[in-house]
Amino acid sequence: MTGTSETLRGDVLVRARDLQVHFPVRAGGLRRKRVGAVRAVDGVDLEVRRGETLGLVGESGCGKSTLGNALLRLVEPTGGTVEFDGTDVTALGKRDLRALRRRAVMVFQDPYASLDPRTTVGQTVAEPLEVHGLHPGRQARAARVAELLELVGMDPSVASRYPHEFSGGQRQRVGIARALAGEPDFVVCDEAIASLDVSVQAQVLNLLRRLQRQLGLTYLFVSHDLSAVRHVSDRIAVMYLGRVVEVGTAEQVSGDPQHPYTRALLSAVPVPDPVRERRRERIVLAGDVPSASKVPSGCRFRTRCPHAFEPCPDVDPALQEVRGGQAAACHLHGVVGVGDRADAVR
């Protein structure tokens, strides 16, 4: 765990309220009329507390990356608000938005695609310094680039080399150095280890944890890898079809999940103990994830949920606290209360 009990009770750095990102679906030849929308993010309430790591997990296509991009306004929200350190991000003009992007940055998923192959490592890391007017002068910038490369575990002498000369893990270190150039407060790690070998994943995770302790960073760690998320996160938020369906501390969500979807995700994670692996319950969900352009009525998980009952087709459950800061969007804890039906999900 990266945080402390004080961190978990600390103030909120990033807050999303009813955040929506809908992409239009068009058809009809040249005029291409709008015939629907892909509801990639569909009414998300989320808080990221200062100094913590919030893990964001869910199946591919559930809206995790779009949510991370919307928090930084790399994609424009369709509705709702995003506050960063008390400032409404959705209302900022271009100049103020540029200032924000010094403090809130992203480490991208694919280190092979996120670095310009025609630009040296030194130029890549120096670019944010030039954009934000930091460390003016060639010598000062070169010294700062050397510091940043050393910070992520690379020899400053590689500054004159190009991305194709490095492995995936080394490229991701360059991407992290670039993200840290502006001395940010908030870092969105968008599947930052997904394209790396397992041994390299561990190195990058350890690097991120060290940098958080050293620099006081706040992370949103987006991943479909629950094992990695449990390893690095203070709290975990679970997304399904554009909506957060459960949030709580890493211990709460991984040890006693309160939403059927979270239980299904956890049951798919291998256990290193062969005896426990044979004995533990496996939950196989029926069917496929519905299209984000045709979200089911009521509870959006009901078409795959083994516990669906009367209210599920008609009433969309709100995310509400179940116990001690752990919240779930499930009628088992709402319409009928935590009774016999709620016991079925545990």
Results as ranks from 00 to 15, higher is better:
D340V: 00
G337Y: 14
V338I: 12
P306K: 13
D316K: 13
A328D: 12
V345E: 13
H331A: 11
L319H: 05
T303L: 04
G339K: 08
H333D: 03
D314Q: 10
G324E: 15
Q320D: 09
R302Q: 03
A318L: 12
P296V: 06
V335N: 00
A342S: 11
C299Y: 00
G298L: 06
D316P: 01
G337E: 12
V295F: 03
C330F: 11
R300A: 05
A344F: 02
P317A: 07
R300T: 09
G325I: 11
E321P: 12
Q326A: 08
H333F: 13
F309C: 01
T303Q: 02
C312D: 04
G339I: 02
A342R: 14
R341F: 08
D340T: 00
C312W: 07
G324N: 06
A329S: 13
C305S: 08
V345Q: 13
H331E: 10
C299W: 03
P317Q: 10
A342F: 12
R346Y: 14
E310L: 11
Q320T: 15
K294I: 10
A328G: 07
A327D: 05
C330Q: 01
D340E: 15
C312H: 01
L319R: 10
Q320N: 02
H307M: 02
S297P: 00
P296N: 01
V322Y: 05
C305R: 05
V338F: 11
